[in-house]
Design a binder for these strands. Sequence first.
DNA 1: CTACTGACTAATG
DNA 2: ACATTAGCCAGTA
Length: 85
Amino acid sequence: MFDAVEDIPPGRVSTYGAIGRLVGVGPRRVARALSQGGGAVPWHRVVRADGTAAEPVRVRQLELLAAEGVPVRNGRVDLAAVAWP
DNA sequence: CTACTGACTAATG
DNA sequence: ACATTAGCCAGTA
């Protein structure tokens, strides 16, 4: 599952649900995995299905994304434009 | 075993 | 845009 997250290139983002489907697990499982072991993967490239960031990290995450060139508007990522298939 | 929790999602009003 | 509801599934108590 961490592999799937690692594969997200800079400037692109994916969602918990998308990762979950790729790996074959539920989105909550992905969220939990990142919340615990997330230090070694680009967790900031994983956002919610609506493009918002998870509460505990949302400020930091939006900074990192914006720093990578991801279009962020009002704390919301433009998934249609930068979603990783 | 049950009950509750949460970096979630999708549908509905 | 906001609130509610139901589904989801691993951890924890």
